[in-house]
Amino acid sequence: MSFTMLTVKRGDSRFRLLRFDARPDGSIVVLVDRDPSPKTAAKRLGTDGVIVDDVSRTDQVTEHGKVSCHTTGQVNRYASGEFADKIIIEPLHQLTRTWPVLYYSVPAFDRLDPCNGRKTFDAEVVLEFPAEVTERVTFMIQLVPKDAVPTSFGARLQYEVYSVLVEVVPESVPPELQQHFIEASLAKSPIEKRHVGIAESELAFHSAVHGPGMKVFRETGGAYVILATVPKRVPPRLQVHFSRAGLEAEQIPPEGNAPVTHKVKFWIRDKGGRSRKDDLRKFIASIALDARL
């Protein structure tokens, strides 16, 4: 898992714009990087194209928008912490074209939250604007093949098998929205439904990144995940033999109620219990996923 912070620098000031959360399963979450705020002045676009006050607006403080882009190609957009809509694109490891996933229009950079100096990210990308830029600026966030490059002013975040482009685009904002931040998804995708399952897409993603075969990863907290070569018929049982005495594997039950047939999460235990500090993969002599019926 990695966090990338995209900031705006204008003159001597730096502001938070977007955050990108790359997940271990290959998915990525794009978050509008603003402090939570009330929906007291929220507006929405009605089905007839008319802008109206949001009937659900409230003084309750809520999170701002985000999109979760999954390895299957399903892209979910959330507004104020609630699901808003979704589109289907190509699986992330098979992107062949540009897929816009979020339109984000900022009324003025001074309305963004300033950077506070705390490092809560793994990497930072800075977009630098002249100090005299005081008007609205609109960004398009797009998922693209790995080697695609921006066609206008912006930034590229390159991941293992795809990239994210953030580009400045022209905007035409109605007068009643001139003082508002605008978060929106784009036109519907020509792809109507997913053509690959969650397990298959995650395995295909990691195979594209790391090559074929069974893989064992270590998470930030110290636990391990083993990926099968193909999904099993039933949730598998882990079998591990170690080359160092005193080590044993503890399989961790999956979260949620859905059966997980393509991977297993586990701890490696020593005489002190779960070993969180050291990477002990070098002591794995053999490992297998037993899924016999």
Score class of each variant (00 low, 15 high):
1 M>P: 15
4 T>C: 13
5 M>P: 05
6 L>I: 14
7 T>F: 03
8 V>A: 12
11 G>S: 08
16 R>A: 11
18 L>E: 05
24 P>W: 00
26 G>M: 04
27 S>I: 04
27 S>W: 02
36 P>G: 11
37 S>E: 11
40 T>Y: 07
41 A>N: 12
43 K>Y: 03
52 V>P: 03
53 D>I: 05
53 D>K: 14
58 T>G: 09
59 D>L: 07
62 T>W: 09
64 H>S: 12
64 H>C: 12
67 V>P: 07
69 C>R: 00
72 T>N: 07
77 R>T: 09
82 E>D: 10
82 E>Y: 07
84 A>I: 03
84 A>G: 09
85 D>M: 07
86 K>Q: 14
86 K>C: 12
88 I>A: 07
92 L>P: 07
95 L>C: 08
98 T>Q: 13
98 T>H: 10
99 W>H: 15
101 V>Q: 02
103 Y>K: 05
107 P>Q: 01
111 R>K: 13
115 C>H: 10
115 C>V: 15
120 T>D: 15
120 T>L: 12
121 F>V: 06
122 D>P: 08
124 E>Q: 15
124 E>K: 14
125 V>Q: 14
129 F>H: 12
132 E>L: 12
132 E>Q: 14
134 T>N: 09
134 T>F: 05
135 E>R: 09
135 E>A: 13
137 V>H: 01
138 T>V: 07
138 T>C: 15
143 L>R: 00
145 P>A: 06
146 K>R: 14
147 D>P: 03
147 D>Q: 13
149 V>T: 11
150 P>V: 02
151 T>D: 08
151 T>L: 10
152 S>P: 05
152 S>V: 06
154 G>A: 06
154 G>F: 06
154 G>T: 02
156 R>K: 14
159 Y>W: 14
161 V>M: 05
165 L>D: 03
166 V>N: 03
169 V>Y: 04
171 E>Y: 11
172 S>V: 08
172 S>F: 05
178 Q>Y: 05
178 Q>R: 13
179 Q>E: 15
184 A>N: 02
186 L>I: 07
187 A>M: 12
189 S>I: 06
190 P>H: 04
191 I>T: 08
191 I>Q: 10
193 K>T: 15
193 K>Y: 11
196 V>G: 04
196 V>P: 02
199 A>M: 05
204 A>K: 07
205 F>C: 04
205 F>A: 04
206 H>F: 09
206 H>R: 06
207 S>W: 02
211 G>Y: 03
218 R>V: 10
219 E>R: 12
219 E>N: 15
224 Y>M: 07
225 V>H: 01
228 A>M: 05
234 V>L: 12
236 P>A: 02
236 P>T: 00
239 Q>H: 09
240 V>F: 04
249 A>H: 00
249 A>E: 00
250 E>C: 11
252 I>E: 05
253 P>A: 13
255 E>C: 10
256 G>R: 00
257 N>C: 06
258 A>E: 12
258 A>R: 10
260 V>F: 00
261 T>W: 01
261 T>K: 10
261 T>I: 10
266 F>Y: 01
266 F>K: 01
266 F>W: 02
267 W>C: 03
268 I>R: 00
274 R>F: 04
274 R>W: 01
277 K>S: 15
278 D>N: 10
278 D>C: 08
279 D>F: 03
280 L>A: 04
281 R>M: 15
282 K>L: 08
286 S>I: 01
